[in-house]
Design a protein around this nucleic acid. Structure first.
Length: 454
RNA sequence: GUGAAUGUAGCUCAGUUGGUUAGAGCACCGGAUUGUGGUUCCGGGGGUCGUGGGUUCAAGUCCCAUCUUUCACCCCA
């Protein structure tokens, strides 16, 4: 036990059974992405820290995995700096690369770098792992996959509708009951502006986001601690207490305070509402929730978050519109909207609810038993023919005891076993064993192929 | 980053107020059954009890440190 190898905190190995199930999720998601006309890209696991830093808020920066410079990286650090023991300053000198934290920021970087090859609006999807130096706990890993779709280079709110449709389609295929929560950052910004604290929008958003969890009083405390003024806190307390935090109420506030951005947010939200009333969703519930904030800094318009209705776990999917993300990389006026499916959390939910179909687990359809050199040569020819018919088949690699070979088929859930020994060769036939029923038939190769195909 | 709990065989766990050689079930390997798995019976391998130190005649059991895993907060998929 002592010297057994381990893997780093928050990372996992995926065994064959788990991989089958993970691939089922990835394939379902990818199929829907393609159905809506998205094209795939990949970006490197490693990005320059200058690309990653400052995009996710202070908390996000702390959670970035940083990579040491190669070579004698300490030689550039002078003794004064070392003795100060300021980790941030020293890190800047010894690390210039990091592991990507999400797929959206690398995508924005990609768009700016490849702007001349891209036809806008650009619809891309990307399924790759991301890394966060978080403390692992339930549904939280340090390495996990995100499945992102984004449309960049179009302001149309039709894209938001499409994102909602994609989300609905994927979760209906996976047979999960979910709620899509929708809000708009412009509304939050309008609130901040209306009370003369436009710079506090992040603090306000993060505090309001906890409304469901900790209640209005604790939210009020947190707002106070962040130096949010009393007028705003009062507004919240009153409207929540009177169950009155409605679109109309907010609209009135924004009109009174002449907050253009707030009014724009309300218009955008109404657009989505109106269009959603035209189209049918298969499975998803929609909830407009003014307390939804999302921690990532870069969102500027609609924001989405998906929760499981049946399992208590953080959000399993999230996204929104970002107007200025490519601007920080030098490309102005390119707005994007996208959403990210958290494959690992979706897996956890599906496993708890037992939602994985049974038929995704079989791999090999037929095993050829190996009786020795003459027989294996004979089998090799037949097995080629079977594989040419697109049937997964394998030959046991040694003439082990029959018991062992059949157990192998049993453990691997292989439904058919072909036995070809001296007798069968002489009679030019195959003994085919059905592992479920235990039945054995003598068949020829064509019949065997037909049985395996059905 | 803050606060808690946890660690005994591949897995799930027992192990009394500290006291011989640390157990069970499942899994694995072999045999009953040399051309037949999933059932049954018999046998077998596998542990310096997370790691390092300490207390004691004696530590899986008590103390300290450290690591791991898990949970909550923060934040998030």
């Amino acid at each position: 036990m002592a010297q057994k190898p381990t893997i780093p905190k928050g990372t996992r190995d995926f065994s064959p059974l788990v991989m089958n199930r993970r691939n089922y999720i990835f394939n379902t998601i990818e199929k829907v992405f393609k159905l809506y006309g998205f094209l795939q890209i990949e970006t490197p696991a490693i990005e320059n820290l200058s690309v990653l830093m400052g995009k996710y808020g202070d908390e996000g920066d702390k959670l970035l995995f940083k990579i040491l410079n190669s070579g004698d990286f300490l030689s550039k650090v002078d003794d004064k700096l070392l003795s100060k023991k300021n980790s941030t300053e020293i890190t800047n000198k010894i690390s210039e690369k990091g592991l990507r934290y999400d797929l959206t920021v690398p995508f924005a970087r990609y768009v700016v770098q490849h702007q001349n090859e891209i036809t806008f609006p650009f619809k891309r999807y990307q399924i790759q792992p991301v890394w966060r130096a978080d403390r692992p706990q339930k549904g939280r890993y340090r390495e996990f996959y995100q499945c992102d779709v984004d449309i960049i280079g179009s302001n149309s709110l039709l894209n938001e509708i499409e994102i909602i449709k994609i989300t609905d389609k994927i979760f209906s295929l996976l047979d999960l009951n979910i709620t899509i929560k929708i809000n708009n950052r412009k509304i939050l910004q309008g609130i901040a502006e209306s009370f003369n604290q436009p710079d506090k929008i992040i603090n306000i958003a993060v505090a309001i986001d906890k409304l469901d969890k900790i209640g209005i009083n604790k939210v009020a405390n947190e707002l106070k601690q962040n130096n949010i003024n009393d007028d705003l806190i009062k507004f919240f307390k009153n409207s929540i207490a009177n169950n009155n935090l409605s679109l109309e109420n907010l609209k009135k506030l924004f009109s009174d305070k002449k907050s253009e951005i707030g009014l724009k947010g309300i218009n955008e939200l109404n657009f989505i509402k109106e269009y959603l009333s035209y189209i049918k969703l298969k499975k998803a519930k929609i909830e407009f929730d003014f307390s939804l904030a999302r921690g990532l800094n870069y969102y500027t318009g609609a924001i989405f978050e998906v929760k499981s209705n049946d399992i208590e776990i953080g959000s399993i999917t999230g996204g929104g519109r970002y107007d200025n993300l490519s601007e920080v990389f030098g490309l102005k006026n390119v707005s994007g909207v996208g959403i990210s499916f958290g494959a690992d959390r979706i897996y956890d939910v599906m496993e708890k609810l037992n939602k994985f179909p049974k038929n995704i687990e079989t791999t090999t359809k037929i095993l050829f038993v190996n009786f020795g050199e003459t027989e294996e040569k004979y089998c090799l020819k037949l097995i080629d023919q079977i594989r040419d018919n697109n049937i997964n088949a394998e030959l046991y690699p040694s003439a082990a005891k029959l018991k062992k070979q059949i157990s192998y088929a049993n453990n691997k859930n292989i439904p058919y076993v072909a036995l070809i020994g001296e007798n069968e060769i002489a009679q030019n036939t195959i003994t085919l064993k059905n592992m479920k029923s235990g039945e054995q038939l003598k068949v020829d190769i064509n019949k065997l192929i037909n049985i395996c195909k059905s």
